[in-house]
Design a protein around this nucleic acid. Structure first.
Lengths: 338, 338
DNA sequence: CTGTTAGCGCGTTCAC
DNA sequence: GTGAACGCGCTAACAG
């Protein structure tokens, strides 16, 4: 391993002071250095392979230019898409330093959030975005929020006021129920995601409200999937087939669950939408590719991510920024499955 | 935002020296502190909400306890699984500090690798694991390797010697061809992944070698998918149906490509394996869930990840460690599709 | 077993 | 427009 060049050594080599190098390489104070020396320094620094030590800079500045992103499941396409979009948004903009994301996965395990947030804070992240919050995490997040800005995205927490960027899941669920009503379904059913996430609670609520209002019979089916697709889907289908009256349409709380139901139907020789109409949630890549493409609710990934990014930037720059939490409206995409 | 407590303030409060606190809270030097004071310090530190500043520790130690992980596509289930496994392996073991991963995605864009590696090095990662290397990246990686250990996983680079932990993709391809031979197929075909990754080159090579040796006709089909599944799969199927003689079996270089082919078959009313036998690669969750489950090559994720983790740990502890690159053998899982 | 001292590499403030 | 000096928070080395 080669020893790294530091600023002092580079300064010695160029015959200037360290401070001049620091200024010349910075984006905000570069104008203080004479153009000629500035260019010389930049070129020589590059040629010498000089790399500023960001851990030292972080210590001196009191800002690390990192943000912590907490996610429940890295295998979930939607989360990945949000991470990507946030990252693109936070990455180098002209004149500003880019923020490096620290990504961590909770898998919805109870202690994970505490441990990972602890790590984030010890690493002096400038802000935290949580896409993984459950109500059990409220105290931890509130505690963290006393040290750095904490922003919620995708998943809200009832009864706690964090700056947040969310999808109106209740509206999404309502859209699906309305769609079923318009198609003339009289008996319907939900395959719900794990209720420790407010996301799924709200989808269920919105759906049920519309069913009640339009006198649709909603069978009280409670499926609690973890990450499972096939397993939960199969169980769900079995349960549905045993119901009386038997539902003619099902709302799966995400595309993965929908896929599970579909696969189970295939095993039994049932077809959708003829035997059972089905609608998912998220507009996953998979939903577009299926032989009979899946109707699904399109998640406003771009909006949610951009606003989360904006919240973070603004709150880092000014901790007492008067933020505005936002709720973005999803849209129903009707395909052949319903 | 509340001001954070630092070590000096805590020391003042407890009436001990900062060094004692440092030792008491460390895992390797805790034995130097009297058990009574050690416990008192730990409890008081916890009660006061003290959090050591890891950026400062990194500066002082010359080690950040972070590692950079470079991946081509976060949407790929196998990569995610590898990241998870490596993380589990590098996470807190008794008596050692845990390593925080910095994760970055290249999307196989040419400049991305350089920029992201630059960021890693500036952030003083203790090592880099690349799951995203293409041959264009060799110089960048070699340069990085002069500063920190660089380990390759999943994707190798021809002609460059980095410590690596790989799957024997050539053997995997060969297994598939052998399987086709045993099933009596005479004319076969491949749907290849993008050839800038050695992974796919080797799968193709192993497959072709066996075909040649066993006098199977391999149609010279060259499909170059990016991340596409349905698109590339459809094109592939169209091309295959136009071939003469027409292949009776196809080897898709990963499960996503296989899914694309399968969906295209459904659109045309073709069935597998009757009309066309198909084998994928990776043993993705999806392959198990399909109505007709997909034969596939099981990727030795656990082995590859663990060895990559071991390489990193050992090389960090001792840069001149005599490492051993390893090649793990995949295994063919025959299901109903072939 | 504990305290003292020094310095990791950088960015800022204050001189000039 | 540039240089000198200081200190961010921590840990290693050395005393005692």
């Amino acid at each position: 391993m080669m020893a790294r060049l530091n600023m002092r050594e580079l300064a010695l080599k160029l015959g200037v002071d360290r401070a001049t190098i620091s200024r010349a390489l910075s984006s905000d104070k570069a104008h203080l250095v004479a153009p000629a020396t500035r260019e010389r320094i930049r070129q020589e620094a590059f040629a010498a392979g000089y790399r500023p030590d960001l851990t030292a800079a972080a210590l001196r500045r009191g800002r690390s230019n990192t943000i912590g992103i907490l996610v429940s499941d890295l295998g979930n396409e939607t989360f990945i898409e949000v991470i990507r979009t946030i990252f693109r948004y936070l990455d180098k903009r002209p004149g500003e330093a880019s923020l490096t994301p620290l990504i961590a996965e909770t898998l919805d395990q109870p202690d994970a959030t505490r441990r990972l947030i602890d790590t984030f804070l010890s690493r002096r992240v400038d802000a935290i975005i949580s896409l993984a919050s459950t109500e059990a995490d409220t105290p931890i997040l509130q505690q963290a929020a006393r040290e750095v800005p904490v922003v919620l995205a995708i998943r809200s927490i009832a009864g706690a006021v964090f700056p947040s960027s969310l999808c109106d899941d209740r509206a999404g669920g309502a859209m699906v129920a309305t769609h079923f009503a318009e198609r003339g379904h009289k008996v319907v059913c939900q395959v719900q995601g794990p209720p420790l996430s407010a996301t799924f609670k709200n989808r269920a609520l919105g759906f049920s409200e519309v069913c009640a209002a339009r006198s649709i019979v909603e069978m009280p089916q409670r499926i609690f999937a973890e990450n499972a697709t096939s397993a939960a889907g199969k169980r769900a289908l079995d349960a549905m087939l045993g119901m009386s009256p038997r539902p003619t349409a099902v709302f799966a709380h995400n595309d993965a669950l929908a896929l599970g139901v579909i696969e189970a139907m295939r095993h039994r020789g049932l077809r959708y939408p003829e035997d059972l109409a089905i609608v998912g949630f998220n507009n996953t890549h998979l939903s577009r590719v299926l032989a009979v493409p899946l109707s699904t609710v399109d998640y406003p990934v771009e909006d949610v991510s951009r606003h989360a990014g904006e919240l973070v930037r603004n709150l880092i720059d000014n901790p007492s920024y008067r933020f505005e939490s936002r709720l973005f409206v999803p849209s129903l995409i009707v395909r052949a499955s319903s």
